[in-house]
């Protein structure tokens, strides 16, 4: 309205006192509207029951050397691979300088033979192949994402393709020698 020429009959400006009052009212209204917006936005964030969703327990005993299992955690696949000594050796032999997202193999596992990863490609969220023996494992004996051609190595690190980061490692603990709890 300030852009319009004062229309005939509109309230004449009565000076500073009104300006302060109007300003205070406007400020209060703005604060009020801002405060009202938050509950709406917040309601779209994960609800309490979603946040509290059960952690997943996995029994590792049946997973033979060289095999892998996929379990569901928070609606996402988690890759668990029982790595062979050769897998571990090749992952550790890779110099960090060759990595796009440098991380040592040691920093990505709790026990050398058990690699636990969130099976979601860090590019655009597809599930990489490489869990089944018949799957392609990519050029680095790990996983291959068929959507856009990202290759991960035996430590789940990105080696080739558009993905920017290594496959994420979820928080997990060994509850016994052969059991882990994810989350």
């Amino acid at each position: 309205m300030a852009d319009m020429a004062t229309p005939p009959g509109s309230a004449p400006d009565t000076g500073g006192r009104r300006d302060f009052l109007t300003l205070a009212t406007t400020a209060f209204t703005a604060v009020g509207v801002g405060a009202v917006v938050w509950p709406f936005i917040s309601s779209m964030n994960p609800a309490r029951d979603t946040l509290a969703l059960a952690s997943t327990e996995v029994d590792l005993a049946p997973v033979q050397l060289g095999q892998a299992v996929t379990v569901m955690w928070r609606g996402k696949p988690v890759f668990i691979r029982h790595r062979t000594p050769e897998n571990v050796a090749s992952a550790r032999a890779t110099p960090l300088t060759e990595l796009k997202d440098p991380a040592t193999d040691q920093s990505r596992v709790q026990k050398d033979e058990w690699l636990v990863l969130i099976g979601v490609c860090t590019h655009l969220g597809c599930v990489p192949l490489g869990q089944k023996p018949t799957d392609p494992h990519g050029d680095y004996d790990g996983w291959f994402c068929p959507c856009h051609g990202s290759h991960y190595d035996a430590a789940g690190r990105i080696r080739k393709g558009p993905a920017p980061l290594n496959l994420a490692v979820p928080g997990y603990t060994f509850t016994s020698d052969t059991k882990i709890r994810i989350g």
């Binding site: 309230a11 009052l21 209060f28």
Partner: peptide
């Protein structure tokens, strides 16, 4: 409480605008 203050302010603005 917030609305109470806002109500007083809004009423003040209204009074002033209508004063003329």
């Amino acid at each position: 409480l917030f609305l109470g203050v806002l109500g007083v302010l809004a009423y003040g603005v209204k009074r002033r605008i209508w004063a003329d």
